[in-house]
């Protein structure tokens, strides 16, 4: 003891720091709001899910969902990630590319998706799918949701929700016709290049506000006429040059050729 107090070993400081971090870490883990919830699927549902997973997904994600060079590990991604990825047709991925695109498919019904989600959730805790109340847009405040959307989402998805380009062929898709559930899950799980917005960043109520905003802006997208895709000045300029100027030239030709 004496040696330690009189001439502190350099490693002692590091040790102390580590212990401190460990304590704060576990206290935080105990007190922080829980956002990961364990799966509560029945054993038979999990078993169904495992079978579906093995025949459809394991080539890329591995038999235990621990990942292969062709696909990441799904341990801990949670039911929400599976519901989002399979529900929007992104998974099973059909072709290699910069990013798995949203595809309209009828490959799995909701029961099968739920089964696979339960299986993945049984491997390790992760975010589960939102409840019906959490995605009920009529209970959200679109005004607040809009403010959150502009600060957190517009830089990638554009303020009109029309989508935008990221580097090297990646892109943030347009949000038109995306189901409320999938909007919620996208925020929970942060698919691909999208960051995770956990319940500390954006509370469940705020997520509902965002859903309300995204839905309501879509209902008003065509105020004032055809919106030309919602991409703003670029299609408008093209339209002015091609359609507008085309009509003007046609009118000029007509006027100049008319007998007097």
């Amino acid at each position: 003891m004496k040696a330690l107090t009189s001439r502190r070993h350099p490693a002692a400081l590091v040790l102390l720091l580590l212990i401190g971090l460990l304590i704060t870490g576990s206290v935080y883990a105990a007190l922080a709001p829980k956002q990961a919830t364990a799966a509560n699927g029945s054993a038979s549902q999990i078993e169904d899910g495992r079978k579906l997973f093995e025949s459809n997904c394991s080539t890329c994600h591995g038999v235990q969902a621990t990942g292969t060079p062709d696909g990441p590990s799904l341990v801990g991604v949670g039911a929400a990630a599976v519901d989002f990825q399979v529900g929007t047709g992104r998974m099973p991925m059909v072709a290699p590319g910069p990013q798995a695109p949203r595809i309209k498919t009828e490959m799995f019904d909701q029961d099968q998706i739920d089964a696979m989600a339960a299986y993945v959730a049984s491997l390790a805790p992760g975010p589960s799918s939102p409840t019906a109340d959490q995605i009920d847009a009529s209970k959200g405040d679109a005004g607040k949701g809009g403010e959150l959307f502009r600060v957190n989402c517009a830089m990638c998805h554009s303020s009109a929700g029309a989508g935008g380009a990221l580097t090297r062929g990646k892109y943030a898709p347009g949000l038109k016709n995306v189901e409320p559930k999938h909007i919620y899950e996208a925020m929970q799980t942060g698919p691909q290049s999208m960051p995770v917005f956990n319940d500390n960043n954006i509370t469940p109520d705020e997520k509902r506000d965002i859903i309300a905003y995204v839905q309501q802006t879509q209902e008003h997208a065509s105020t004032g006429g055809q919106s030309l895709g919602g991409y703003g000045p670029v299609p408008e300029g093209m339209f002015a040059w091609i359609f507008g100027m085309g009509l003007m030239v046609a009118a000029a030709v007509w006027a100049a050729s008319r007998a007097n």
Binding site: F149, V151, C156, A160, H220
Partner: peptide
């Protein structure tokens, strides 16, 4: 109306 009010903290794609 789809873009919302200007806010120096926000930016938009496109």
């Amino acid at each position: 109306w789809v873009h919302g009010p200007y806010d120096p903290n926000a930016t938009t794609a496109g």
